[in-house]
């Protein structure tokens, strides 16, 4: 399918590590990375250009000013933010105790719970929505008829991201020793959580919160099919009327999700790099 080692282009003895196994030549690397890079940059640049495009190729910021002057822009953004905050709160409330419990009491089932957190991937969100309609129609209106149902479902749908972030944070500290040390000094679970676990898990909690919040701001399928005009639903409505406004709005939405995501990706990869260096570290504890 793919020829991995084009020997002709490689310069022997010029590289190290995995580059030494692969021996791919400079031209190959540059061509591949440039083309792929272009594919990701061109749509962003085009969106920016498109959103500032006035009549007869003039430059205008009217798409942005009109958007910011629309009441619905602010109200839908506020609704999405509200749903996001609710979801983050519920997620942390549900997951922090669960993840900690699994690591302390059921370490052998860690992988089982990690797998369970991936279950939402098995049921496409369109199907979840249909199921919500058929099975929760009878519930009181305060749950089914308000955006509360969105938060309740988003906790589940964002689980593959949020659980993993918390799980890897717990995995990276020596939880069992911390808990045992705390208990031997006479603190109960509440004190442990407040003074030992939360400070140590701060990174993972922030990561999980950002991922969950970003998910909520972007989720379209469930919100639109349950007829809630959240931010992405508003975006589609704008798109049917004013293309340049929709593009401007999309660009803002993308940038606002990318920046925090980039921050946590960098932080997490640094932490992983720090952890993975000495293999012996893992055995030192015992």
């Amino acid at each position: 399918m793919v020829t991995i080692a084009p020997d002709i282009t490689s310069k022997p003895g010029s590289a190290n590590n995995s580059s030494d196994v692969l021996r791919l030549g400079r031209p190959f690397r540059y061509i591949v990375l440039t083309l792929v890079g272009l594919f990701f940059i061109v749509p962003i640049v085009s969106s920016a250009r498109f959103s500032f495009l006035g009549n007869h190729n003039s430059f205008t910021i009217s798409a942005y000013t009109q958007l910011f002057g629309t009441a619905q822009f602010w109200s839908t953004l506020f609704l999405s933010a509200k749903v996001g905050v609710g979801t983050v709160f519920l997620t942390l409330l549900l997951l922090i105790p669960t993840v900690v419990w699994v690591h302390v009491r059921l370490p052998k089932l860690r992988r089982v719970f990690e797998a369970a957190s991936l279950l939402p991937l098995v049921v496409p969100s369109v199907v979840v929505t249909l199921g919500v309609i058929t099975s929760f129609r009878g519930l009181p209106n305060i749950i089914y008829g308000t955006p509360v149902i969105l938060s309740l479902e988003y906790v589940v749908l964002a689980l593959p991201f949020s659980y993993r972030a918390l799980d890897s944070a717990v995995q990276s500290i020596d939880l069992k020793t911390l808990v045992e040390a705390g208990q031997s000094l006479g603190s109960g679970w509440i004190k442990l959580l407040r003074y030992v676990l939360l400070p140590n898990l701060r990174g993972g909690i922030i990561g999980a919160s950002i991922l969950t919040f970003a998910f909520c701001l972007g989720e379209f399928a469930v919100a639109s099919l349950l007829s809630f005009t959240t931010f992405p639903v508003f975006l589609v409505q704008v798109g049917q009327l004013a293309a340049s406004q929709a593009v401007a709005l999309s660009l803002l939405a993308l940038l606002f999700t990318w920046i925090p995501l980039a921050v946590i990706t960098i932080v997490f990869s640094q932490r992983r790099a720090k952890r993975s260096t000495p293999v012996l570290d893992d055995l030192e504890i015992s």
Binding site: G239, A246, L249
Partner: peptide, 15 residues
């Protein structure tokens, strides 16, 4: 990898 949804569609419309 976490991008998707509606904004992605519109940025390709612009492109």
């Amino acid at each position: 990898a976490n991008t998707g949804g509606v904004p992605l569609a519109f940025s390709f419309v612009a492109t």
